[in-house]
Every structure is written in C-alpha cells, then in structure tokens.
C-alpha cells in the first residue's frame, strides 16, 4: 500500500483500533467511528486520523465521516447485523469501492456473501489458528 488512501474504520473496539492505528502509521488518512468515545483510548499514540463519536447506524454520522470520499470502508463493530447494514450502505449509498465486513457468527457468513459483501469471519479464522497451532505443538511433543 504505497498510495495514501482515505479509509473509514467503523467500530473502534479491539480489532478496529488495531486496524485504524496501523493504517494511520502506514500514512493513510483514517477516520474511525464509534458511539462510545472512550474506545478511542485503544488507538495507538501515533494515530493521527479523525475519531468521530456517533451511532454508526445513523446516516448523518456516516455523512459526517465523509464516507462518500473513502476508498476503503471496514465494518468492525461488535454486531454482525450492524456490520452487514453499514457495509451495504457504504457500497450502495456512498459508493465506496472496497468494503470489508467483519462477521462473528459463521452462520451469517453465507448470507452476507450472498448479499455481495466481502466478509472476514474472525471466529472461523481463530478456530483455524487454534487447530493449526495445537497440531504444531503436538508434532513438537511427539
């Protein structure tokens, strides 16, 4: 990622804050939205983007974040349905070219993909990591 992008990170929980901090460090212009402004404490000290406090489901808030100018939107709130809705809003209303959606419940992965979303099912990824690491440990011990 050489070119500087405008990236919207929606949800500033543990995952959102790591992503936003990283993007900012890489020189991208970052806006991060969360309804609880205490979550912005999770951001790293080098974070130089814009935090916006507001309900991420609300159209006004997404407009205030200038989502229409973003090249990338990443929906990483703690609620699957919220991520699914915000991602669809980003794609269809704000015409954001790249939208990534975090899904927690694997049962919602298929439907989200059917809706045309690019999903990252973090629970599934963790499970795979656990199984893989366990296998490695067993191999070392045997």
């Amino acid at each position: 990622m050489k070119k500087s992008l405008y990236i919207a990170v929606i949800g500033c929980g543990r995952l959102g804050s790591i992503l936003a901090s990283n993007f900012s460090k890489q020189g991208h212009k970052v806006v991060v939205i969360d309804q609880d402004n205490s979550t912005f404490n999770h951001l790293s000290e080098e974070f130089s983007g814009f935090p916006i406090t507001g309900n991420t489901a609300e159209m006004n808030v997404l407009q205030a974040a200038k989502l229409d100018k973003a090249q990338v939107a990443i929906a990483v709130t703690g609620k699957d349905n919220l991520n699914i809705m915000v991602s669809q809003l980003a794609k269809t209303v704000f015409k954001v070219p790249i939208v990534l959606t975090r899904i927690l419940d694997p049962a919602r992965e298929e439907i989200s993909q059917k809706l045309g979303l690019t999903t990252i099912t973090t629970t599934k990824i963790s499970a795979v990591a656990f199984l893989k690491t366990l296998q490695e440990q067993l191999n070392i011990n045997s």
Partner: peptide
C-alpha cells in the same frame, strides 16, 4: 428497535 436487525 434496531434498523440493522430489521434490514438483515
């Protein structure tokens, strides 16, 4: 009570 739940 939540728009996102109604949509999904």
């Amino acid at each position: 009570a939540h728009d996102e739940d109604n949509l999904v």
